[in-house]
């Protein structure tokens, strides 16, 4: 099996979108293109409103990813855990597909006897370690998020630390929404580490709108831009596309 690239969008938000297209539709669209959407909901004073919860879970479900709603204090551990779990999930989905082809029947890892499951898990572990990973991080910087941004920054540094311990390559980029003039503003272009998050991050002036849908749309676009740019440099671009989990 060839080692390809896992593509993820990581959305960090604390509330509901109120502008542009439905983020759940955009997330489903991302999934169709082999991009997983994970969502982390940051709680405001121990509460999160019901509608926001539904939207957060909905985006992750449609985007084939994982969602978690957490207190700000445990953000670091959650961000890295969600990212890694989603990776495993994607890779397991691919292994499942390969299995179907090899065994020529509709079977998943869970349906095999425990001994064989163990061997397959070793393969998934190995892939997890070596696969290349591209993550577009999308941070909601609307007014209610202001106080949480330093913690978000710390969590992202921590994510970078966790992932850089792997053998595979990582590429991160950081987008925030709403931007000054556009829906989305780019803070960090594709780079292998996140320790260069500009200080601008803490000085952002939060805007009023929460255009989650358009922001997701841009994030997807961002993968394509990268692909076409790198396409000039290298021809083959294997991406892991997961049909079902």
């Amino acid at each position: 099996m060839k080692t390809g690239t896992v593509r993820q969008i990581l959305l960090i938000t604390d509330g509901c979108s109120n502008y542009g297209e439905d983020p759940q539709v955009v997330a489903a669209f991302a999934k169709e293109q082999g991009i997983t959407v994970n969502v982390i909901g940051v709680m405001q004073n121990d509460i999160i409103d019901e509608r926001a919860r539904d939207e957060i879970e909905g985006i992750a479900t449609q985007g084939g990813g994982i969602s978690q709603i957490v207190y700000t204090e445990v953000l670091s551990q959650t961000v890295q855990m969600v990212t890694r779990q989603a990776m495993t999930q994607t890779l397991q989905g691919i292994v499942n597909q390969e299995l179907k082809q090899i065994l020529n029947k509709d079977i998943t890892i869970e349906e095999l006897p425990p001994e064989q499951r163990g061997e397959i898990m070793e393969v998934v572990d190995e892939l997890n370690e070596t696969v290349d990973l591209e993550v577009v991080i999308l941070v909601d910087t609307s007014a209610s998020m202001t106080k949480k941004l330093p913690t978000v920054k710390e969590a992202l540094l921590d994510l970078s630390l966790s992932l850089s311990a792997r053998a595979g390559n990582n590429q991160f980029s950081l987008l925030v929404f709403p931007g000054k003039k556009k829906h989305v503003e780019k803070l960090l272009d594709w780079s292998p580490r996140l320790d260069t998050i500009p200080d601008v991050f803490a000085k952002l002036i939060p805007g009023g709108m929460t255009p989650t849908g358009p922001a997701l749309q841009e994030a997807i676009q961002y993968f394509h831009e990268k692909r076409s740019f790198f396409g000039l440099l290298k021809r083959s671009d294997d991406s892991y596309h997961e049909e079902s989990v």
């Binding site: 551990q77 370690e129 966790s162």
Partner: peptide, 24 residues
């Protein structure tokens, strides 16, 4: 050894304290 640490608890993790990587 030499893979990325699978699971950790912050207080006991050198990465959390800024004192090293999360490489096993």
């Amino acid at each position: 050894i030499s893979r990325a640490i699978k699971e950790y608890t912050e207080f006991f993790d050198r990465g959390y304290w800024g004192l090293g990587t999360r490489k096993a």
